[in-house]
Amino acid sequence: MEYFLQNFINALQWGSFYALIALGYSMVYSILMLFNFAHGDIFMIGAYIGFCIASLFILLFGGAAPGWLVLILTIIVSMFLTSLLGVLIEKIGYRPLRNAPRASAAITGLMIGIILETSNIAIFGTKRIAFPQLVETVTYNISGVFITNKKIIIVAISLFLMAGLHFFIEKTKWGMAMRAMSYDFLTVPLMGISLNVIAPLTFAIGSALAAAAGILYGLAYPVLDPYMGILLGWKAFVAAILGGRGSILGAALAGFLLGFIEIFTAMIFPSTLRDLIAYSIILIILTVRPHGFFGKAHSSSLRL
């Protein structure tokens, strides 16, 4: 039982990364009906920006500021900077392609991803980088289950961000505009909401969430490498699909689900089989339920 609970908490943490990244995929899809294939690399860039900001803060404040304050400041600043990156990508890469075939948007996304990755390697090199330890690790032992404060922070912050996103979408005017746009991006612009405002906003929010995921990842596994975007990004993408494309709630849940699948297969099988089993389960789920869990069954394809 303890063992199970222990893994449950690990899975919650692991799943929250996927969920945060998957949200970005899903949001962009719900507005523009295309997947931003560069999103995994935005996550990676977000982590690196977080690394820079954190190092800068540590340099500035030294030991004067408490760790959690630095962490929160880092998250806020890097979320902001990464969202600018997202807006830039939308503007340069996707806006000219809005009426183009969707396969070209997919290719463009892949290419932007490669550019981001390469520029990152050009700046930081291929070596892994240690993420600064902002928070002392404290381990709590609750009747045999070990919980570190980091895990609590990670899960709490990600849940907080998801709740914030939910609030934003459901309660604010901009959120309402986004929801309207996701129903129909041809007619809604006629009502005075410009797609050229909503689309960058979506990219900005998605990228900001990815950046938060990146920093939290750095907090949990304090090594950054330039290929982490590929590793986590693609799985999060799969989670977004699994949740039903364009479904925000579905993406978050499927992100956690994927985390659970991975952690619990690693519990039973050797960990090298993790990818194999996770992807096989996805293949089976999609073969049986071709539209994911929360997706609508409309078929729009990546057409020529």
């Binding site: 969707r102 999609l286 073969t287 071709p290 539209h291 994911g292």
Partner: peptide, 29 residues
């Protein structure tokens, strides 16, 4: 190919992507 009877576009892209990763990690193992 068989899932492609029922689904097209994005979902098939994912199925094929999953297939690719499955092959890769199968060989790795």
């Amino acid at each position: 190919a068989i899932p492609s009877f029922r689904t097209r576009g994005d979902y098939l892209a994912i199925i094929s992507l999953a297939f690719m990763f499955i092959v890769k990690s199968l060989i790795e193992n």
